[in-house]
Every structure is written in structure tokens, then in C-alpha cells.
Design a protein around this nucleic acid. Structure first.
Length: 279
DNA sequence: ACGCCCGCCTGTAAGC
DNA sequence: TGCTTACAGGCGGGCG
């Protein structure tokens, strides 16, 4: 499940190797991955014969900007992958939904078994005017430093449980179920603590844990778990899962206090935490 | 405003 | 062994 660290890893790799490339053709199969356009022609024609000028990211959204001022937006959902293919003749992976071929040779392929992900093209202005999910995104935790006082005010302004708040893309962009658990462990805070109950020390710890956990995860090229199948553009997994403190470690010893990691179901989602270390 | 549930999907794994 | 069922979750929408 690509969250901020995984999308950032994809972004950095694409930036190194697709800028300046010109799109020759785009082939879409099925109706699930490109669903915002009235017709597929509208999607493909906005991409074909245009050059990639930059690759950026907002939260979990990948933004590939073109020389036409249009932007190809990719959201990975649960199982989306963007694969950089050097040889166009390589056999298609199952669940390949979009194939972008470059004039210089090579392809980008969007593969997505669960089809929660999507691709669409909008204008640069459209990112803030026409796509509410993007326009309403909260701050990016790695995009500049926020004072912990400002962060504390934001927490105070809400009276909600910490975990759902961290996962609220309108509050802070890019954190999903997995990194929310890791961040809360690092901060020593329980998932169900109310956001307006934190001491100033806890606010600082939460802010620092958020930035450090996400940065560390990027250094290790994200997390790949058995069933979530995150892969980078080369088809390789990340390395951060081996450094997880709580996520997917039910019953295993807490790396800090040795008590078993607890798993709870909340709103249909798994939450992993240490009942000793998190208060 | 908040918390929770559902539906959308398919691959994997547990259960019978 | 083989079938069926449960489970994983991002996110929008709906409900209490």
C-alpha cells in the first residue's frame, strides 16, 4: 500500500530517468484505472506527443507534469505499481491497465490488481480548482519544517483520536494505516489518545516522530509486506518493513520493552501497538 | 464534527 | 487436495 515514503521513492526514481522523455503512445485497458475522463481518447490525447518536464508529489499522489501544462496524476490505491520497462517486448504483467510508451524507447506501465488506484490528466490549475481530493490535502510532513507550536494548535483545534487524525488526508497528507502505527509507537502515544489531550512534550514528540519515521522509511525505499506488494519502478521491494516496530508484528516482542505487540481492529482496520510503551 | 460502516477489488491464506 | 470464506485496506459516501 504505497503511502508517502513509497510514492516519494517512486518519484525520485522517475525524476532521474523520465524527465525530458516524450510520450509516443498510451494504451489503456479496462475501465477501472482511467475513470475520470469522459472517454479514453481525452486521456490518451492529452499525453501523446508531450514531454515530461517534472515529477512531483502531493501526499500519496504522484504528479507528472508535461510541457503542455497538463499533469498526469497517479494515485496508487492499495496495490498500484508504476513499472519502468526498458524493453517494450517484455511480457505484460497481469493487471497491466495503462501502458505509456516513450519515443526514445521504453515504457511506463501501470499495474494494479485491486484497481483502487487510478490515473487522470488535469491542468496545473485543475490541481487546486477541479480536483477536490488534491485541493483539500493537508500539509506534507516532509515539505518544510512546521513549528511544533503550530502543529500543537492544529491538534488542539480537533478533538479526535490520534490515529484517524494522522490518516486524515485533509489534516496531514501521505500517512496511511501502516505509518500511522509506526509514528504513534515512535511517539509513545496510543492510537486512541484524543488530539487535544497532548502535553507540549508529547506534541513535540509526535511531530518529530512523524518526520523521522517517514524520512527513515524513504531512506530504506519504503515498506513491502507480503500481501500489499509494493514495488518500486524497477519491480523491487522496499527494505523498511524489517525495521517496523509494531506494524505486522502481532504477538512479537516489542523491540523496546519485550512485551508482545497487540493487534486491535478499529473501523475494520488493523492497529498494532505496544500497550506498555504507548500511553 | 466525529466515528464507524459499506462498497469497490483481487490475491492470499486459513478453514472445513 | 480443493473448495469456500475471511481478510487486507485507501477513500468517498452515507448514516447515527
Amino acid at each position: 500500500m504505497p503511502e508517502l515514503p513509497e510514492v516519494e521513492t517512486i518519484r525520485r526514481d522517475l525524476e532521474k530517468d523520465t524527465i525530458g522523455k516524450k510520450i509516443k503512445s498510451v494504451v489503456v485497458s479496462g475501465t477501472r484505472s482511467v475513470r475520470r475522463h469522459e472517454n479514453l481518447e481525452d486521456f490518451t490525447s492529452k499525453l501523446e506527443s508531450h514531454k515530461i518536464v517534472s515529477v512531483s508529489r502531493k501526499g500519496k499522489y504522484l504528479l507528472i507534469k508535461l510541457d503542455s501544462k497538463d499533469v498526469l496524476v497517479t494515485h496508487f490505491g492499495m496495490s498500484g505499481q508504476l513499472l519502468r520497462i526498458k524493453n517494450n517486448k517484455e511480457p505484460m504483467e497481469k493487471h497491466t491497465h495503462v501502458v505509456i510508451t516513450f519515443t526514445q524507447g521504453g515504457q511506463l506501465r501501470f499495474v494494479d490488481p485491486r484497481t483502487f488506484g487510478e490515473m487522470f490528466v488535469t491542468t496545473e490549475e485543475g490541481l487546486t480548482d477541479e480536483v477536490p481530493e488534491l485541493a483539500h490535502l493537508g500539509f506534507d510532513p516532509l515539505d518544510g519544517i512546521m513549528s511544533w507550536i503550530a502543529f500543537g494548535r492544529m491538534l488542539q483545534a480537533r478533538k479526535t483520536k490520534l490515529k484517524p487524525l494522522l490518516m486524515d488526508q485533509e489534516f496531514v497528507a501521505g500517512i496511511g494505516n501502516m505509518y500511522a502505527d509506526e509514528i504513534l509507537f515512535a511517539a509513545g502515544l496510543r492510537h486512541d489518545r484524543s488530539s487535544d489531550s497532548l502535553t507540549s512534550q508529547e506534541i513535540r514528540r509526535l511531530y518529530r516522530s512523524m518526520v523521522e519515521t517517514l524520512s527513515d522509511a524513504i531512506k530504506h525505499r519504503g515498506s513491502s509486506l507480503a500481501d500489499e506488494q509494493y514495488k518500486d519502478i524497477f519491480g523491487d521491494g522496499g527494505e523498511f518493513q524489517s525495521l517496523h516496530k509494531v506494524y505486522d508484528r502481532e504477538g512479537e516482542a516489542c523491540r523496546r520493552c519485550r512485551s508482545p505487540i497487540v493487534r486491535e481492529k478499529l473501523a475494520g482496520r488493523s492497529t498494532f501497538f505496544c500497550a506498555q510503551c504507548q500511553v
